[in-house]
Every structure is written in C-alpha cells, then in structure tokens.
Nucleic acid binder design. Sequence first.
DNA 1: CGCCGATTTGATCGTGGTCAACAATAGTGG
DNA 2: CCACTATTGTTGACCACGATCAAATCGGCG
Lengths: 232, 232
Amino acid sequence: MSYCDTCVVRNRAICAALDNNEINALNGIGRRKTLAAGDPLIWEGDDSTLVANVIDGILKLTNSTEDGREQIVGVVYPADFIGRPFGKTTSHSVTALTDAKVCLFARSDFDRFAHEHPQLEHKLLKRTLDELDRTRSWMLLLARKSAEEKVATFLLDMSERLVDATCAAPHDGPLDEFDLPFSRQQIGDILGVTIETVSRQMTRLKRDGILDLPTRRTVRILDRQALVDMAG
Amino acid sequence: MSYCDTCVVRNRAICAALDNNEINALNGIGRRKTLAAGDPLIWEGDDSTLVANVIDGILKLTNSTEDGREQIVGVVYPADFIGRPFGKTTSHSVTALTDAKVCLFARSDFDRFAHEHPQLEHKLLKRTLDELDRTRSWMLLLARKSAEEKVATFLLDMSERLVDATCAAPHDGPLDEFDLPFSRQQIGDILGVTIETVSRQMTRLKRDGILDLPTRRTVRILDRQALVDMAG
DNA sequence: CGCCGATTTGATCGTGGTCAACAATAGTGG
DNA sequence: CCACTATTGTTGACCACGATCAAATCGGCG
C-alpha cells in the first residue's frame, strides 16, 4: 500500500507514465513534505540534491541579483515537477506561496529511477519542453510590453491557469472571477514592475469598468475583450 | 555510408547518444539544408512539422507582438537542437543569423525515432533542462537589469559562449577578443532595449577604457573585472 | 568616388521608478 | 467584539532612464 494510491495528482503528474508496480518502486524512494506559505524548499545556487512533484499548493521559482532585486521566473501548480535532475546545481530558488504539499526525492535516487523508466523521462521531457515554450513567451512580455499590457496579459493568463484549481464546474474556458494566489508584490515580481505600478494599473482597470475588485485578492473580469485588446 | 560520418557535430549534438547502426537509421529520415543569413526556417505559430540539429552557423528564435515588436528568446549554436517535438505548434520563429547548415527532420519521423531510442530522449531532456535554466536566468536580466548591466552581462556571456566557436586555442576560460555574430539591432532585440541604447552603452564602455572596439563587430575586453562588477 | 545601410550622436519626451504619506485590511490580544 | 498594531495596498509628487525622433557619420561595395 503506497501513498501514491491516494495521490490527487497521480494521473496528472509525470507519475501517470508508470504502472502500479513502478509506482510502488517510486514510492519507495520518495517522501511527502508539507510546506507552509513562505517556506523555502530550495535555495538558488544550492547543490541540486532534491527534486519533487507538487501535490497541492503553489510555489514560485525565483532568481535574484546580489543587491536583492528579485524576479519570479516560474510558478508551479499541482502536478508540476520541481528541480533539476541530471545536473549539478539549481539556478533558482523555490519557495511556497501558499501552504503546499510536495512529493520529494533525492536527486540521485530520482536520476537512477528515471534512467530505468524511459516513459517517465518522456513525460518529463514533454513537460520541460512546454515549460520552455511558456517561459520564452514570457520573455517577450518582460522585455517589450508596457505596464498596462503586462497587467492585462497577467490577468488573462491567471483566468486560464486557475481553471483546474477551482475544479468546481466542468465548464471549459477561462474564469471570469477568481482569487489571485499572489500579493501585489509577487505580481510585480512576476511582471518585472514595482508594486506601485501594479496597483495603479489595477485601479485604472477598475475605474474604466474593465474589472471589479471586490477584495484585494479577488478579480472579476467585466470586459474580457477590452483586456484582450489591451494585452497587445 | 551516411552524411553523419563526416558530421562535425556528430559527437556534440544529441546524436552522440547513438551508436553507428542507430545513426544510420537516423540518417535515413534526415536531410541537410543550407540557409543563407536572414533565411527563415520556421515561422511563429506554424504547425510544428520540423525539427533540426544545427551543424554550422547561428540562428535566432524570436517571438513578436502583433504590432511588430520583436524579442529574441533564444540563440542556437552548432550542435544545438531546434524545434518542438511531441507538440502541435511552435511558439517562436527560427531565422538564420549567419549562413548556416542544419540537419532537418520531419517532426513525425523524429518523434517516432526518439520514442524508440530513450538515450536520444535523455540527451534531449538534458539539453532542454539546460536551456530552460539559461532562459530563466535571462528573464532576470530582461526584467530587472539596467541598460548598462544588460550590455555588460551580454558581453561577458558572449566571451564565454563563443569559446568553442573559435576552436583555435585549447586554452580554457573566456575570450578577451571576439567577433560579435550580431548586429546592434539584434543585440537590442536580445537585451530588450533599442539600438540607440546599445550603441550609447558600447561607446561609454569604450570611452571608459573597459573595451576596445576595433571594428563594429569586434570586441576586445580590456578590463574584465570592471565588466563583471557592472553586470550586477 | 559616391551610394546605401548600419551605427553613432544629439535633443526631447514619456513611462515607470522612487520616495513619502495615507488608507485599508488582516492579525492579535484584551 | 473591539481596540490596537502590523502588514499590505493605494495614491500623489517628482525624477531618471531609456524611448523616440532626427541628423550626422561611418564603412562596405559597386
């Protein structure tokens, strides 16, 4: 009897590539860990000794300059994979944004296991290729878009990404109302702007009737088309 | 007798994972293609029907907004892999920056071949993970660094990346003199700044005695430490 | 030599950063 | 449940960096 039997991401994480025997073997080398919001999991520049699957919660990947400027270079959701297998060092920090549960492996154990299970590597490869595409698209936003375009793009992105988080209704398509899993500071760190700029743009969107902001964390999209036009 | 026998990147590209029999099989589904500087290979949003290995030359990967702003999201060198296997669409354009030679595969052929050769997928996975790390580091630069820091970082990056291009001396370490494979416009597109800003920063570095710029494309680093300090 | 594209240089302007004050919300203990 | 505090978010004033527009200069090539 393994933890995995009851794992909510069993069929969405890379583990979906494995049959029951294999899952049991994997279970033998992994362990669960619970993180509180704000807890670090991996530090930038650490030796790469850990990899993990996200079971529940949201975590951020960050890079920082020596003088403390921080950039969020990725956000991981349940079923996503964390860490740098087959390599010596990790180039970014991983920190829980919400309370989170992860399934943790020693990198060396995972590397060995992956090597013996090509289907697992295949899943991981697809995931990594997807993530690379997403990351590259984000570069265009960071480098070329105005603050207005950044915020509009971000909100649209969220309304799509958070669909399975709110697994409530089986309707397709993006959400028109959702709770942001980020503070204003974190949104700034994602978009490469300051907290004040995020705030000003949000206020403006509300004033123009494109959004409603019932609470600080809640967003209701009133005019999606306007947002799309604005996203550039 | 296959093309691959004489391929200069045979032992550096992902093909290095294959033995001679396998290489022959791969050779059967690939073909060489020559590109002139400026030639496009793949268009953003195309159906993903091609993948390739770079044999010689340098190519850029770009994303663009509808209104024509362009961002270079990646640069590929000999032995690097191009394209999006196991997926439906490519999210960026690929264009030759210099005259180039590539080894081209139909995506479906490559996908099938890769599936049957886990060692190949493994190499590709490592490469993709490396590229993802590099891309994420670049996000910090795009989002948070000043023009001065961007240019300094870029020059240091070039002095390291171009080492094997100039396979002349067997000395390790970065180059202190090299020819940029990019125009000022392209440097701007990599750093997310305008051509004028690149030019001004370069001029300033020269005036301060940190660089010498014998020709428009040649860079000689006179004070590497100053550049490092400046890169932030 | 003369042409054309690439680059440099200069002048001006606007976006978003910075600094500072204020407001709202969440969290804590009486 | 409310007062009090700490934290987070909002708003305003000002300024700097880099964009934009424009002109001059360089360099390669016929």
